[in-house]
Design a binder for these strands. Structure first.
Lengths: 221, 221, 221, 221
DNA sequence: GATGAATGAGTGTTCATTCAT
DNA sequence: TATGAATGAACACTCATTCAT
């Protein structure tokens, strides 16, 4: 995490031997901050509470991350890095186009179901009009590969005659993400207004099935 | 908004010449609060700022709404009432099933495009796990008619052989909403990571077109 | 109550017939204020709450009494007037000295037991160093008769050889009042630190008995 | 005061030269709060004013004591601890019963005369029906020894034939306290209604003399 | 690297009081 | 006589941040 300045410079060097353990401090701060920010948003989260949850002195938080907003960005970057890492591990490039696409859809929806903190963080960042994310340099490069993978899938599918032509990778990704993201991000208000439990296993499974059908149906030539 | 009780009873009477005018105060508080809450969330919004923006004494806010959280709920209820009211005005019941559905999709996406405050409010409320919305009694009734309209469309379409059978109205509504909501709600982060301007007229039009195709394609028998 | 200005002037006159009922408003304000002030003190009492408890518009309170502090004084004056009135009704002048004295003691203690609001008001007024009471003109005259009664009792008792000589009436009154006032005024803290219920019937009776003995024993020649 | 936890643990250690001095902050807050609370009561006292008077940042008050009410209790506990400590120092156990009792009476009255803040605090706490005091654990134990001392005095006096039998220690203590407490606690209203200066040296001396006589006379067999 | 004390600007909320009718 | 709306100053309390060690 390059937000963690003091360690950044040392990263590559051979560490002196007499270092008191690698200090899990920054990592635990990041974890605590992730949970707090996801639960309360940037404005609602309390620096005190993050420090307490991380089990470190509040001062450390400033030492490692500078201030609350920088910590927010660090949390955000880590969250994006995590999902993209898991996504890469799907290795859909080795699968048949239709199967790869289905896998991508299922992963996307599954990730939303299992990582509500990620959704909450993104929503909060959008509330701020991506002010913090835009400062980040690692973001763009993190996502070009994602688009590349989808473009490859589409191209292969088109060549093999299983996918229609003329589909924009980013636009497709957005539609896929939308189906999972919205369902789980808005699950509380939706459950309230429709008076049904969308978190129930049955409801989730039905949604996953329909979403896949919606997208794959659209892709068929 | 019936949250503003004190004046409710008098509304209809033949008032003496403008005696104590109907007081635009609660309405202007609600408008100001809507803007502030949408921009900053519940925790980030400042009561002082809302009062200033509404051009009223801060005390009035408590006089009419009780406290910040009750004001939040009032804003939320009004936001929902607004979209449902416009939705009802579509009168899709009088249109052919496919046309009605298309109109519903276009409205849904258009509303998200034109009412980013609504999206922001819902996201914030979901951050709070719908804590406030769940207290509201008017919510459920507000949405049963919506489901009824969709169910009617689906039934008619099925009877006429233009829609597939077995589609759940709520689940379909969620998918429709998802496509518009996610695109515009996450437009800032998406634009950042994909490095393109999703707010551009061309991008928006393309999204609308694809979304309609995605849903209508799925509905075809 | 001369704090109630609008009616003061009219008091003696033949009231016009067409007066809409005598309006219990000031009296009910006074009663409500008495209860609130006794329970919370001057600073702790809320004008809103007094008005609500009295069942009148808050504005009326200002109409009749001017402001919170004037209302406080009115309550205080009424409270003093009440105890002195009951005291006069004892008519100890007609009793034998020892009996009259015993009756005075028992009344004093009994009144404290039955009127905790009175004790609370006096304590609060002392917190303010009698700032409000000192403004009152009716106070002095209200109490000279009390001292006169005690002086008479003492003089008669001394003449009859049942009381010692040289006792100051005011000082004696203070000692009598002290025994009842302190016990009931401090009953909560005393019960807490001594871990016993001083409000129990047995405890109260024992205190009354001992207090009478203490004073009457002292008065014996 | 153990309400001030954070520093408690370090107290005994051999501190490096004046490293972060023992911080007079909590003590000065307590002193300032004592004065403010005594003068205005719990509701009337202002946190801002306490902080200003203590010469510390208002935030420190919350750092050390939590909130206004907890500070109130801390003040109360300290006040009680002070009087009990001085009382213990009288060491009446070593004196002859009559002399010990006289000393106790004189101390009790003298303390009331010299510590009007103590009286004011107790009155305010009684206004709250001892709500805060009852939470305190140190209170009971603080007062059992007091009762023990009085019981010893009474027993010795009875054995030596100078005190009557059957006197309850707590009840006697209450009567003793009453005479001093009431006189000085109500000195402002009493001076007002009787139109004489009870604070004058002569009046005070007379009261002390009479009070001692009242109690000691009662105790005589 | 690590700590607890300290800060000033602000946070939502409440107050006694007055205005317009 | 009576009312509900309106006010501004203050209220207890909290915030992210920095200081001294």
């Amino acid at each position: 995490m390059d937000a963690v300045n003091p360690r950044a410079g040392r990263a590559g060097g051979a560490a002196p031997v007499r270092r008191r353990q690698p200090s899990a401090t920054p990592a635990s701060i990041l974890a605590a901050a992730g949970a707090e920010f996801a639960a309360k948003g940037l404005a609602g989260a309390r620096v005190d509470q993050i420090a307490r949850r991380a089990g470190v002195n509040k001062r450390m938080l400033y030492h490692y991350f500078g201030n609350k907003e920088a910590l927010w960005l660090a949390v955000l970057e880590e969250a994006y890095a995590n999902i993209r890492k898991e996504e890469r591990m799907l290795d859909v490039g080795r699968l048949a186009p239709a199967e790869g696409m289905r896998r991508l859809i299922e992963f996307s929806i599954g990730y939303c179901a299992e990582h509500p903190e990620f959704l909450a963080l993104l929503n909060s960042e959008n509330l701020h009009r991506a002010r913090y994310l835009r400062r980040s340099k690692k973001m763009r490069e993190l996502h070009t590969s994602l688009l590349q993978v989808i473009a490859d899938l589409l191209a292969r599918g088109e060549r093999e005659g299983v996918f229609r032509a003329g589909v924009d990778p980013a636009e497709l990704y957005i539609d896929i993400a939308a189906l999972g993201f919205f369902y789980f991000s808005n699950i509380h208000t939706l459950s309230a207004i429709f008076d049904r439990d969308l978190n129930a296993e049955r409801a989730r499974r039905r949604h996953l099935k329909q979403a896949a059908e919606v997208i794959l149906g659209y892709l068929r030539p």
